[in-house]
Amino acid sequence: MFTQKRLTEAYKNAKKMYFDDHSRIVFMSDAHRGDGSTSDEFLKSRNLFVHALNEYYENGYTFFEVGDGEELLEYSEMEHIKNAHTDTYQAIKKFFDKDRYIRIFGNHDIYLDNPKYVKKNLFINYDEYNEVFYDFLKGIEPHEAVILKHRNTSQELFVLHGHQGDAPNDQFWFFTMLSIKYFWRFFHRVGIKNPASPVKNVTKRHKIERNYSKWIEKHRRALICGHTHRFKFPNNKQIPYFNTGCGIYPASITALELTEGMLRLVRWKEKVNENGVLHIKRETMRGPEPVEAFDIRKPKEVVEYLAEVKIQRTKKTRETRAAFREEEMENDNED
C-alpha cells in the first residue's frame, strides 16, 4: 500500500519532458561509483561504462542516469569519487554541456535531493593537476522522477529509480546509511553484501516488482526504473515494467535504449576475437519493440496494429542508424 502511495506521489511531482520517434535516449542506472578503494564495485566495469557513454554521445543520445550513480551511503566524500573516476565524469560532462544529461536520484545518492549538496559537489570541480576550480555540472537539477510524454500520441513513460516504498531504502534510508557506512562497508571489502538488500534478497526483490506491476495496472502507464539490479524487458505487454539492470555486473553492464520509437535492452561486455584481441561489444538482449506496443491505455488489437505499422515504417531507418562505432573498431582489429 505504501509503495503505491509513494509511486503516485512521485508521478504527481515528476518533471515532464517530451519525446518522439526521432528521439534517442539511453537509460542506465546503479553504477554505484565509489572512491576507487577495494570495496568500490564500479572499478571492474568502469571501462565498459566509459566506452558505452562515448558511443552513446557520438550517436546523439540523451543520457538518463536513473539513480544510484554514486555510492554516497558508503563513501560520503563526493570529491573522492570524482577524483577516482575522472574519465567517467568527463564523459558525463560532455552530455551535460550539450543539454543531454538527465539525472534522477535514488536511495544510494539521496543526498542529491538537497540543492545545497548539489551546488557544493556538482556545480564545480577541482583540477588537481592545474590546481584550479572549474565549472562542472553547474546548474544541474536532479529529479526524483521524470514523465516522458510522446508528442503525437500522448503515451507516457514514467521514469524513476524505484526505491519508493521500499521502507529501508526510502523512509528509513538514514538508518540504512548508518548500517552501510559503519558496518556493512567493512564486510563489503571482502565480498560479503547486505542480505537485506533487494539485490541479494530474491523474495524482497520479487515483492518490490509485484508492487511496481500493481501500480502499472492501476494507472496504465509504462514504468522504467532500476534499484533491484535485475534487468527487465516485459514479455507481457499488458504490464510494461522495464528495469535498466545495473552498471556493476561481474562482466557486463546493461542499458535500455529508446530510438526511432523502439525500445531495446542491451548489454555491453568484453569479448575476445579469434586473434586474441580484447574488445567491447554491444549485444541486444530484448527487443527492439515499438513503444506503442506498451501503451495499455488502448485496446490490445489497436496496440498490435500500431506496433506492426511502426515496425514496417521504421525498418530501413533503424537498420541505417543501428550501427555503433565499436562494430567498425572490431572489423579494424580483425584486419
Rank of each mutant, 00 (worst) to 15 (best):
D295S: 05
Y212V: 00
E217G: 10
P288F: 09
K232D: 06
Q164A: 08
K269T: 06
L223P: 10
R282I: 07
K316F: 10
L137T: 05
G60W: 05
I239V: 15
Y11W: 12
I102C: 07
P195H: 01
Y305H: 10
N13R: 14
Y61I: 02
T88E: 02
H188M: 09
G245F: 06
H85Y: 02
E79H: 11
F175E: 13
Y249K: 10
K94H: 08
N275K: 15
V146T: 11
L265G: 07
K15C: 06
S252T: 01
G245V: 12
Y11G: 00
H85K: 04
F95K: 00
D30L: 04
G287M: 11
K16M: 11
T254Q: 12
A322L: 11
K214E: 14
T88A: 11
N331Y: 10
T153H: 04
Q155A: 07
W184S: 05
F233I: 11
E128F: 14
K138W: 03
R189L: 14
L306N: 12
L122S: 04
A222W: 05
K44L: 07
V132C: 12
L137S: 04
F231S: 12
A14Y: 01
K237V: 14
E55P: 01
V202P: 02
F19R: 09
K119T: 10
E156I: 10
F174T: 13
I208K: 07
D166A: 10
E292W: 08
T284M: 05
P198T: 02
T8C: 03
P299L: 07
H161M: 04
K193W: 08
R321F: 13
M17W: 06
M78E: 10
A222I: 08
V291S: 12
E304F: 05
F172P: 00
L223N: 04
D99V: 01
Q312L: 15
Y249D: 09
Q312C: 08
H32A: 03
D166I: 10
I192T: 14
E65T: 13
K94I: 04
L223R: 01
N125I: 03
D166Y: 04
R297D: 06
E77S: 15
S213K: 15
Q238C: 08
F158T: 07
A322M: 14
D21K: 14
N243T: 02
E326Y: 14
L72E: 02
T203E: 11
P299F: 05
Y89C: 01
Q4E: 08
T153M: 06
M1A: 09
G162M: 02
Y129L: 14
M78I: 07
H22C: 07
E319H: 12
A222D: 05
A167H: 09
E301Y: 04
E327M: 15
H229S: 06
S29A: 15
E304P: 01
A307E: 06
E334W: 10
V146R: 08
W173K: 07
L53M: 13
K214L: 11
F2W: 11
N125M: 04
E328N: 13
S197H: 08
V266F: 02
D68W: 11
S37E: 10
Y101G: 00
H206A: 04
F63R: 01
S76K: 10
F172H: 13
Q164C: 04
R321P: 00
I180C: 03
D135F: 13
R100G: 00
I280W: 11
H51G: 01
K82A: 01
E131W: 09
E301P: 01
N114H: 03
R220P: 02
K193D: 09
